[in-house]
Nucleic acid binder design. Structure first.
Length: 605
RNA sequence: GGGGUCGUGGUGCAGUCUGGUCUAACACGCUGGCCUGUCAAGCCAGAGAUCGCCGGUUCAAAUCCGGUCGGCCCCGCCA
């Protein structure tokens, strides 16, 4: 009995089996479904642990029957009764608890419920905005509960593994200092220092390096990060990283540790045995073979270079591209030769949306096998040698579809990379339940911003670089290879890391290449650089995204499904209404006056 | 900042292209009745929608046009 005189639960709704038959038990939970037969009434009672059928049999207790009749979906009740074996042909094999039922003797209504705006069920038919507004109801649905359960188990597995490896879990500040490069900061105005602002951390990057300088040696944190950029299906304004940093290590140590971590987590949580070590792919190799730096290696369909096949081509589309220093590449969509006109148009549309000038396709046919066996609107422009060369290079077989893009290197890679994914989806080349990790390494240290011409860090300014490339600082910094690495799972960038710079002279070179003057360096990173004056150990780390990891592990398509209270693609919480305006007095405390946008003013006027 | 797409009873959708037949269909849910073994219970009856919002065109707008708000997907952005 609890303080209100109501029987406390003795069991949960998911645990009762034939072995409990005859036991008197009390369950508490939500009415999932009610089936009223006039006489006998069935209630499916739901809690976090499962579903249990409660039966109210007529005869005897009229009051009990009457209470049962008034129950509705999502009412919260406490039921006391006896566990019975169900009649032989009434056993429900689809329910874990389907062998037994609870014969009710006593029921207490704890809470009534309005009819919920959508049915709480395995599959929700409701649109996402409604589900987000009533997130606490959506979270009652088993798939979301399972995702949060999985997430919890992953947290525990991570901690167990890293603890055993002597890592310390350390919190770093949420109110930090703004650094203008990288993602846009979320700013928090300071009351005590009027006109000044904290920033929420984009990641604990600087702090984890300082922890290494402090001699903590091995740090981890399941860390919240904040970036004021537009969300996507796999991006939220606030998200969680498994943030790791270690001293006295090189790339191999990070690879080993991370592989061990994921191997442990997948074994512990999913009972899946990952093959280690993970495949390692050079950055340029990834771009050339998969058209992306986050290759999905669960299937083939690799990009094939065709420049030399068409080096002598009279087909202007090809010759002009080659003259301009562009590229011709293709993929063999094996077995897609039967695609309809509509499907081909859709593929071309995808290619164009990723900046391809066009998509040239060849169907490999039987009839014309003699002259290369190619059917396309452009075959007439190609020589027999080109057609044969194309077929050989792409290992074309009857019934295949060859997709070719000619243009600037980046557009070719990106569009073919996307087509590769699209073909894999359409042809169902991806077996569900597969987890293919790989490392991508040898990223360039810098890239030039095409708009500003400014040199920018590919990763961040503390990323180490390959010692043997150091001369390129004077000649062509874009050729310097960094000591950064990405870990990619099923074509999703899970996270990146690097071996950091710990030598002042190296750090200085990088800042100079980035065009930062002494003043800017001091203002932004002064405290970090000062720390480097007092004995810095070589160190490095990695930060895999936890939300994406859980999303993939649970087979869901959006990280919103694995975050308890996510935001929309405009960064709003449909449940709480955040962000909101605040009281004028709050602004006054902060010394802030709002300056409405012109558009907002027009609305007022 | 840009592109695409969606918005119709509580929910999911049909109708929109080709304005009138829409007094808005269907399924689920909801309410009431019947029903003693269901588990997506069944059967019967009923309530419930100013078609996201504002404006325009028209004799007539869910439907056409302009704007706007919101969701989702994508580009840009995400050191």
């Amino acid at each position: 009995m609890n303080a209100e005189g109501i029987a406390k639960r003795t069991h949960t709704c998911g645990e009762l089996r034939a072995s409990h038959v005859g036991k008197a038990v009390t369950l508490e939970g939500w009415v999932h479904r009610r089936r009223d037969h006039g006489g006998v009434i069935f209630i499916d009672l739901r809690d976090r642990y499962g579903l249990m059928q409660v039966v109210f049999r007529p005869g005897g207790n009229a009051d009990l029957q009457d209470r049962a009749r008034r129950l509705r979906n999502e009412y919260v009740i406490s039921v006391r009764g006896i566990i019975r074996h169900r009649p032989e042909d009434m056993v429900n094999p689809n329910m874990v608890t389907g062998e037994v039922e609870l014969e009710a003797q006593q029921v207490t209504l704890l809470s009534e419920s309005k009819s919920p705006p959508f049915l709480i069920d395995e599959e929700s038919g409701a649109l996402e905005d409604l589900r987000l507004k009533y997130r606490y109801l959506d979270l009652r649905r088993p798939p979301l509960q399972r995702a949060l359960q999985l997430r919890h188990e992953v947290y525990q597995a991570i901690r167990k593994y890293l603890n055993e490896k002597l890592f310390l879990e350390i919190d770093t500040p949420i109110l930090t200092k703004s650094t203008p490069e990288g993602a846009r900061d979320y700013l928090v105005p300071s009351r005590t220092y009027r006109g000044k602002f904290y920033a929420l951390p984009q990641s604990p990057q600087i702090y984890k390096q300082l922890l290494m300088l402090a001699g903590l040696d091995r740090y981890y944190q399941i860390a919240r990060c904040f970036r004021d950029e537009d969300p996507r299906a796999d991006r939220q304004p606030e998200f969680t990283q498994i943030d790791i940093e270690m001293s006295f290590v090189d790339e191999e140590d990070i690879y080993n540790l991370t592989e061990g971590l994921f191997k442990h987590v997948f074994a512990e949580v999913l009972d899946v045995s990952l093959k280690v070590p993970f495949l390692r792919i050079d950055y340029w190799d990834a771009l050339s073979r998969y058209g992306t730096d986050k290759p999905d290696i669960r299937f083939g369909l690799e990009l094939v270079d065709l420049n030399d096949v068409f080096s002598e081509s009279h087909f202007q589309v090809f010759s002009k591209v080659l003259e301009a220093g562009g590229q011709i590449k293709g993929i063999n969509a094996v077995g897609c030769g039967s695609y309809s006109r509509k499907e081909m148009d859709q593929l071309a549309e995808i290619a164009k949306s990723f900046c391809a000038p066009g998509l040239i396709s060849f169907k490999v046919t039987a009839e014309e096998a003699a002259e290369g066996g190619l059917q396309s609107s452009v075959t007439k422009f190609l020589s027999p040698e080109e057609k044969t060369g194309l077929c050989e290079r792409m290992k074309a077989q009857e019934g295949d579809l060859l997709l070719i893009v000619a243009g600037a290197q980046r557009a070719v890679a990106e569009s073919l990379g996307q087509l590769r994914l699209e073909i894999a989806r359409r042809q169902k080349l991806i077996e569900p339940g597969q987890f293919h990790f790989c490392w991508v390494y040898n990223f360039p240290l810098f890239s030039r911003n095409p708009d500003t011409g400014q040199m920018e860090s590919e990763h961040h300014p503390f990323t180490g670089f390959r010692e043997e490339d150091i001369d390129f600082f004077e000649t062509d910094p874009t050729k310097i290879r960094s000591r950064a690495y990405d870990i990619v799972l099923n074509g999703v960038e899970l996270g990146s890391g690097s071996i950091r710079i710990y030598r002042k002279d190296h750090q200085k070179k990088v800042f100079e290449a980035l065009g930062l003057d002494q003043d800017q360096i001091q203002r932004r990173f002064g405290f970090l650089l000062e720390a480097f004056d007092y004995g810095a150990p070589p160190h490095g780390g990695i930060a895999p995204g936890l939300d994406r990891l859980i999303m993939i592990m649970s087979g869901l398509g959006s990280i919103r499904d694995v975050i308890a209270f996510p935001k929309t693609t405009t960064g709003a919480s449909l449940m709480s209404g955040a962000p909101t305006t605040v009281d004028e007095s709050q602004l006054q405390d902060l010394g802030i006056a709002l300056r409405p946008r012109k558009r907002d003013r027009e609305v007022e006027a």
